[in-house]
Design a protein around this nucleic acid. Sequence first.
DNA 1: TACAATTAGACTGTACACAATTAAATTGCG
DNA 2: CGCAATTTAATTGTGTACAGTCTAATTGTA
Lengths: 143, 143
Amino acid sequence: MKDKYDCLKLDNQLCFPLYACSKGIVSAYKPYLDKIGLTYTQYIAMMVLWEDEEISFKQMCGRLLLDSGTLTPVVKVLESKGLLTRNRSKEDERTLTVTITDKGRALKDEALGIPAKMAQCSKLDPADAAELYRILRKMMENL
Amino acid sequence: MKDKYDCLKLDNQLCFPLYACSKGIVSAYKPYLDKIGLTYTQYIAMMVLWEDEEISFKQMCGRLLLDSGTLTPVVKVLESKGLLTRNRSKEDERTLTVTITDKGRALKDEALGIPAKMAQCSKLDPADAAELYRILRKMMENL
DNA sequence: TACAATTAGACTGTACACAATTAAATTGCG
DNA sequence: CGCAATTTAATTGTGTACAGTCTAATTGTA
């Protein structure tokens, strides 16, 4: 019944459900994020600024685990929406400082209901959610 | 210590580690997939054909949870690499039948070592890996 | 102090990923 | 039978995502 190719079956992969769930969750966010006019990537970028209102672009890349090629256009779009400003640092002209605006800060309150809505939609019981969180955190450290 | 905005912190999200691990695993595959000349998306598409050597395009989309806009170019690239053929069904001209070639079948043996290499790289103990798999599967059904 | 090495962002090219639309083929119903 | 509704891929447009490259600014060192 078992053959040497079993390890190549989609159903036996750990990576595929991970990849599918990641896309699934991001798309589940869409209706809620549409209401506040953000994409998922823009949302997590704003999340960084909701926590630290001023941060260097480089640090932002590190927190989000995104490279400059991805984050540069995202931050420019957020700037064009008036949610943040981009300025070169006085001490080091290479460094780009990203700062939240009043409008960006105001959006925080609009986003407040989203995490609860998302928790419902995954339909995981709290124990599974906690386990998942624990294992994914461990995995992140190894990658 | 706790404020109402805690739920909007990146560290308190379940989605973000999921999204980060998904990207992390896919990028961990890269060196191994480079050796056989496939991207991750191309790899999972070939996985479907390694299991079912002939399948309709529509079914393939369903198995991979990808829509036609994503999979059409992927399958065309795999065709150009000579790993599969694309043919319209005789019974229903709308249906595209995707069939593995000898070259595609041969690639299966080259890919055989990859899953084991990936299991090492995630560095999860078997118990955690099994738990993760179980929870992600449950989540997939709910999404 | 010159100048090599490093660092920070931006840019280019390739590859997804999905929503929305389109076109062709087929089906179903009056 | 005739035509509206449905189905299947393909296409278009927007938005990531990352490798590789480039430029400008800064740092380290002889």
